[in-house]
Structures are given as structure tokens and as C-alpha cells.
Amino acid sequence: MAVRDPAIDHLLELLAPLGAATARRMFGGWGVYLDGEIVVLFARGVAYAKTDALTRADFAAAGSAPFVFESRGRTVETSYWSLPEAALDSSEALRPWAQLALAAARRKPVARKARSGEDRRG
């Protein structure tokens, strides 16, 4: 049985009043899901919430920063931004940030796989 980071248990506890909260290991960190949608990426000891063009400014205004990683010699910025530290104090404090992340996750278009033989040109 894999040992789970206590911070993940804390996040799940804080998210529980908002819906079905679960966590899965991914990329050396954790994906935290709310009602089946990934809303938080927990990596390097930091919780990053899902953002999009409609919510990113809210996170930036709160002093958050994006999750970045190096790939093939370049820095890649993701759509996950750090949660404000105070958001992890209580379910009530996390609620608005979790709702923004859930809304962003639900707005993300689902990638459609090309069928065999389908013309992939525009």
C-alpha cells in the first residue's frame, strides 16, 4: 500500500463538503479530484488549482504562481496555479478557490480521438 502525504489527506478533508473528493498519484505528485474532475495538482509540497482564461486573473491577484516544469530544455507553464496559503486553513476558505478550479476543469474541452482512417487535415 502506497503511503499518502498527510497534505493530501488534509486537502481531501477540506474538499469533502464540496463533493466527492479523491486523490491519485501522478507524475511524482498527486492529482486531487472533485466530483471526478481534477481540480488540484499537488507537487513539490505545493497545491496548485486548475485555472483557465476566465479564472487565472483571480489567482494572479491573490499572489499565486503557475506550476512550471522543465521539458527538453525549455520551461513549460501549466494551467495549474498555486492556492493562496490561507485557502488551506479551512473548507470555507478553500471553497471559492475550489469552485473556480472546478468550473475551469468543467469548461476544458474534451479531446476527441481521431477515428482510424479519418482525415486529420483542417
Rank of each mutant, 00 (worst) to 15 (best):
E13R: 11
K108I: 01
T22E: 08
V40R: 07
Y33G: 04
S82A: 15
A86E: 14
L12Q: 11
A87L: 08
T51C: 10
S91H: 07
A104D: 13
Y48L: 05
D89Y: 12
E85G: 07
P84N: 08
R112Y: 07
F27K: 06
A86F: 14
V39N: 01
G28I: 03
W97C: 12
P66V: 02
M1H: 08
S90I: 03
A98N: 04
L88E: 11
A49G: 12
T78Q: 03
A23I: 13
A105Q: 13
P96T: 10
V68I: 01
E92P: 09
G36P: 01
V68W: 00
A23K: 15
V68K: 03
G63E: 05
P96R: 12
A87M: 09
P6S: 06
E85N: 08
E85C: 04
M26R: 14
H10T: 08
P17D: 12
E118I: 01
R106P: 13
L18W: 00
A111N: 09
W81K: 02
G29T: 11
A114G: 09
R56Y: 02
R121H: 15
E77C: 02
Q99P: 00
D119P: 10
G36M: 00
L54W: 02
R95P: 11
L102D: 03
T78A: 04
A43D: 04
M26E: 15
M26P: 06
R24S: 12
A61R: 11
A87T: 06
L94K: 07
R112V: 12
W30C: 02
R106H: 14
P109T: 04
L18E: 02
D35E: 06
L12G: 12
A87G: 09
R115Y: 13
I38G: 02
S82C: 09
A65R: 11
A61Q: 10
F67D: 02
E13G: 13
L18K: 01
L34R: 00
A105T: 10
F67M: 05
A23Y: 14
G29M: 07
E13W: 12
T78C: 03
A49K: 01
Y80I: 00
Y80Q: 00
F59E: 03
T51S: 09
G73K: 08
R121V: 10
V76A: 00
D5M: 02
W81E: 00
F42N: 04
R121F: 14
G19K: 08
W81N: 01
A20M: 05
A65W: 05
P6L: 05
R107V: 02
A86W: 12
T51E: 04
A7S: 04
D119C: 14
G122F: 09
V110Q: 15
Y80G: 00
R121Q: 13
T55F: 05
G122T: 02
G117A: 01
L41C: 09
S90A: 08
E13T: 13
L54P: 01
W81Y: 09
A62Y: 03
R115D: 13
S91N: 10
K50W: 03
A7Y: 02
D119K: 15
E85P: 10
W97M: 11
L102R: 09
A43C: 06
L14E: 03
E13M: 09
A98H: 03
V40L: 15
A114K: 14
R44Y: 07
D58W: 10
I8R: 07
T78F: 01
D9H: 11
R120E: 14
A23V: 13
R56V: 13
R115T: 12
L83Q: 08
P17I: 10
E70Q: 13
